[in-house]
Amino acid sequence: MNTSFIKYHSPLLIILCFTLAAVITTTFTLGDLKPSAEFDYADVLGEGGMTLMTLVWIAFILISRPRGKVTRWLFSGLLLMNISMLLDFMDEFIIYPESGTWITAIESMPAPFGMIIMSIALYHWYQEQMTLNAQLRRTERVYRDHNLTDFITGLYSAKYMKQQIKHQLLYSKNSHKPFTLMMIDICQFDQFNRQHGHQQGDNLLREIGQVITMNIRDKDVACRYASDRFIVLLPDATSDVARKFAEHIENSLANVAFKVGSEQQTHYQKITLCSKEFDGTQSNYQIIEQLNLKMEVTKQQNNSSLSKQVA
């Protein structure tokens, strides 16, 4: 199990333990244990179950969420509800003398407050989710499947792109509108990895992925193809449009000063870029192969023009 949450939620965990301990000791100091014949086991089961479930919810919230306002609100709301339920549950085992009956009078008070706080927290959670959705929407198109994301870049993977190409093919065939695929290859990525380490290589990939997403339209989708290659689907676009976009991407990347780790050293990454227009008559597999071949040709051309410049 993932136990890293214990570290960054330790203040909340301490509050939780302290509160539970305080509630239990208060009930015991105020009242006395009932004889076991008076226990109502149906009640014990029901109220105990409710208490336990709210504790489980608290645990899930802490495991799944980072520190922050929304987490604190959710935690406090649930904790207040849990206090009420725990008091109710303790009632089944403890009988209070005259002087301690105030506790039964107030035992249901924390719950409504907790519920109000929970409602506020849920509203904020909704707002937070909307913000995250807006961020995600830049990387996806129509369909969401978290299983298909690429772990390193946060973009979708080649598998997602293949599905999207399949849909696009159907659409293009029926509507006779062309679409363009763009492939982007990072130059000398092996060398970068050898020089700066693979962790930095992964960071570089992530940053480049973000730059590409910034330079495309809402209806386009950029995915990581494999290794140091990205692929962009541009629906309803001719290769002229793609050429313009390519220029944008190249310009922005030329101005990205990637900082290697915490050093001051900057790295300007060069890329190889190619695009090809399709009209929907080819198969899914042919398209990918043709695009890859075009990539090889473009790379060779770039290399030969580079060596010419040097000469």
């Binding site: 080649a158 494999a226 290794s227 890859n292």
Partner: peptide, 16 residues
Amino acid sequence: VEHIEQYHTHLNMSNH
């Protein structure tokens, strides 16, 4: 295999 893209990029084998 389904992950043919890995063969394309890592092995530089872009053609059947």
